[in-house]
């Protein structure tokens, strides 16, 4: 498949103190390192191993991902909103590739 592309779902507005749900999905094969090719040789591991969610520069949530997470990894979590600002989402792959996506949220 082509280059990994992140998808996110973040509300655009929230009230101060709201706990909002964030949903993310990135296209990635998540090659586990456990599979063998047709010649019987192990296909090297190539996965997204780290995900972080920052809000205005501070880490809200992160995870360490292992090969048992499914292809096209989906992550859902929450964040407490105290002020307007910007979410920054970062996915890091074994080969050093980094994928980023951001979205602003306004506190009404």
């Amino acid at each position: 498949m082509a280059k990994s592309k992140p998808r996110i779902k973040v509300p655009k507005k929230a009230a101060k103190g709201d706990v909002i749900t964030l949903k993310t999905l990135i296209s990635h094969k998540m090659e586990s390192g456990q599979r063998k090719d047709k010649k019987g040789e192990k296909i090297p591991r190539q996965i997204i191993n780290k995900f972080t969610c920052e809000f205005n520069g501070a880490t809200v949530f992160s995870c360490d991902i292992e090969p048992a997470v499914s292809a096209n990894p989906y992550l859902q979590f929450t964040a407490k909103i105290e002020e307007s600002g910007e979410f920054q989402f970062t996915w890091t792959a074994d080969n050093g590739d980094v994928f980023k996506k951001s979205q602003k949220i306004t506190v009404a």
Partner: peptide, 16 residues
């Protein structure tokens, strides 16, 4: 990895 800014200790994914 959660923080006090997470609001809740809830998370979902899909696994093999």
């Amino acid at each position: 990895n959660f923080s006090h800014m997470s609001g809740s200790a809830e998370a979902s994914t899909r696994m093999r």
